[in-house]
């Protein structure tokens, strides 16, 4: 009794096969990421140094560092998020806390979802038409940042709404029943309890804004532009700028005889910026989890 039969042994074999098959597939997901990072760092190692970060590209971008594109990317990301975050967060607060279910809010929610799916090249053309030409801003950091802001906006709205919805209704009831207005409820209770979630959503958009090439190519990024090395205020709002993603594209495909390490070095820095910022988001998320008591 209770001993194994041919049938149970067969089932156990299948169980083992299934487990290891699934595990292999899971490992296959991580493998490319690790390979990419190591390969990039290996290829870039001859060039990686502090100087590489702080010097402009020289000799037709075949030598020197990536100061100008690095600073350009920082400008584009920061300014686009400065524009997109307040609009996105306030819109999400309105949609989640004030708006009643109606055809208008349904249309707005639908628009937000669909806007998130628009390819970045379409955003690029929109930015070119709307900001560069129609509004007359011209190709500039401002126009490119506005374009990136439009691109990141829907995701910021969606993630903010999610963070707001996670605040228990009981907290809101507690407020209404001592006579708090909606705005007091939002300011005193809803936002303080969702701010980390909102920030996480916003920070995750940094990697998107930093990585996209198409939206800035038409609206403000240039192939080459030398700026004052070490000067954090080297770009003005209406200047054009270099950007890491664009720079990587240029030196890998448009300029002949670039030393191999150069594009790899650029890629490592771009990846490094994105990973660093994402790590920040993970830390934030971890902190909310540990603080949450409801």
């Amino acid at each position: 009794m209770f001993t194994s039969t041919k049938n149970t042994q067969r089932k156990k074999r299948q169980e083992l096969i299934a487990k290891y098959l699934l595990m292999t597939m899971t490992l296959l997901i991580i493998l490319p990421l690790i390979l990419i990072i190591f390969y990039l760092i290996y290829q870039a190692s001859p060039i990686l140094s502090v100087d590489f970060l702080l010097k402009n590209p020289i000799r037709g971008m075949r030598d020197g560092g990536i100061w100008a594109p690095l600073l350009g990317t920082i400008y584009l990301v920061l300014i686009s998020l400065l524009i997109a975050t307040p609009i996105g967060v306030f819109a999400a607060v309105y949609l989640n806390e004030y708006a009643r279910e109606s055809w208008l809010t349904r249309v707005i929610n639908l628009a937000v979802v669909n806007l998130a799916g628009v390819p970045s090249i379409v955003h690029a053309l929109f930015g070119l038409g709307a900001f560069v030409l129609f509004a007359g801003i011209g190709r500039s950091i401002l126009a490119a940042s506005l374009t990136l802001a439009i691109m990141t906006l829907p995701v910021i709205i969606a993630s903010t709404k999610e963070a707001l919805a996670a605040v228990p209704v009981a907290f809101r009831q507690a407020c209404w029943n001592v006579g708090a207005t909606r705005w007091q409820t939002i300011r005193e209770v809803v936002l303080p309890n969702s701010i980390s979630g909102i920030l996480t959503g916003v920070i995750l958009q940094v990697s998107r804004a930093a990585g996209e090439t198409a939206p800035i190519m038409f609206t403000g990024a240039v192939f080459y532009k030398a700026i004052q090395e070490g000067d954090l205020l080297a770009y003005g709002l209406l200047d054009q700028c270099m950007a890491l993603s664009m720079h990587l594209f240029t030196i890998s495909t448009q300029v002949p005889d670039v030393p191999v390490a150069l594009p790899y070095g650029t890629a490592v820095v771009l990846l490094g910026v994105v990973l660093l910022v994402n790590a920040l988001a993970i830390v934030l998320r971890f902190k909310i989890r540990s603080r949450k008591k409801w």
Partner: peptide
């Protein structure tokens, strides 16, 4: 004014809902 009304008429719920 609803705010004034709700100051005078408070409510307690099934599940205690202290704020965090």
């Amino acid at each position: 004014e609803l705010i004034e009304l709700r100051k005078s008429v408070g409510m307690v719920f099934q599940r205690p809902n202290p704020l965090p």
